[in-house]
Design a protein around this nucleic acid. Structure first.
Length: 255
DNA sequence: ATGGTGGGTTCCCCA
């Protein structure tokens, strides 16, 4: 049983690389972010033909999340309770087999002190309340996606240069830590302690080839999910060559 | 080296 997460930065633009990746890796569950497609235009037939059920929650131009699974996706939730229809589409959850899955695209936040940063911090507090109210941490649960936050300086290519910068700041890390305190663990750190394990490299400035990256795509696991987690692997190959997303897939395997 | 690239029913905004 494995679960993957991938910010594809437009699913339709990514299809020439996405479909071969899906065929080759065949994850049991795949959480996508930044699909950037309304539900009516979601490329469902190609994905269904590959053997997947789909739950999607998209909007025009920005954001958009989806869950793909080989087994049925039950009890699908979309957005936060109380969201109006204009709310940004950044949250989708469901139950697949005996796994509770929550797939997130956390706001980027732009820069500290900006209105977008304020939005990010408010969104993270909304997330904490939603997760705390709705979910049972005794369950086998995975909260995954693009968090747009590094846990610590090991996740940052230039910790001094990016001190208190967006994705690395103390308020962001504290907001994430507050969510972790509900009873979650950083899946990758069960298996790997080293620095320099990145999941995102800017498209600009040849960042990938300079390995100027960040680890911002995560698997947050409850105790029982952590216990059965056998590996967490970052697929760096997916960042190489033409037509890559700026994020790579991360794949967690469970016994 | 404060630049640059990539995506979107695009002519600016977002990352």
């Amino acid at each position: 049983m494995n679960i993957a997460t991938w910010n594809v930065n437009s699913l339709r633009a990514r299809m020439p690389r996405f479909l071969p990746w899906l065929q080759e890796n065949q994850p049991d569950i795949l959480c996508l972010q930044e699909t950037k497609v309304i539900d009516d235009l979601f490329p469902r037939s190609e994905i269904e033909d590959a053997g997947y059920n789909i739950a999607f929650f998209g909007q025009k131009t920005y954001n958009g999340v989806a869950i793909l699974a080989r087994q049925p996706i039950e009890d699908v939730v979309r957005g936060f309770p109380g969201d109006d229809e204009d709310a940004q589409k950044r949250v989708i959850g469901g139950i697949v087999d005996d796994f509770v899955v929550l797939n997130l695209y956390v706001p980027n936040g732009s820069e500290l002190g900006s209105p977008k940063f304020e939005f990010k911090m408010n969104w993270l507090e909304q997330l904490r309340e939603f997760v705390s109210d709705r979910y049972d941490f005794a369950e086998k649960m995975v909260i995954t996606g693009d968090f747009n936050i590094t846990f610590d300086d090991r996740d940052v290519y230039d910790p001094e240069g990016l001190r208190e910068a967006i994705h690395c700041s103390t308020p962001e890390r504290e907001a994430l830590a507050k969510i972790m305190e509900l009873g979650l663990h950083d899946g990758l750190r069960k298996h790997h302690e080293e620095a320099g394990l990145y999941t995102w490299w800017d498209h600009r400035g040849g960042a990938f080839w300079k390995d100027r990256g960040l680890r911002i795509d995560h698997f947050l696991l409850t105790d029982s999910a952590l216990e059965s987690c056998a590996s967490v692997v970052i697929d760096r190959e997916a960042r190489k060559g033409k037509g890559a997303s700026d994020h790579v897939p991360v794949i967690a395997t469970f016994s």
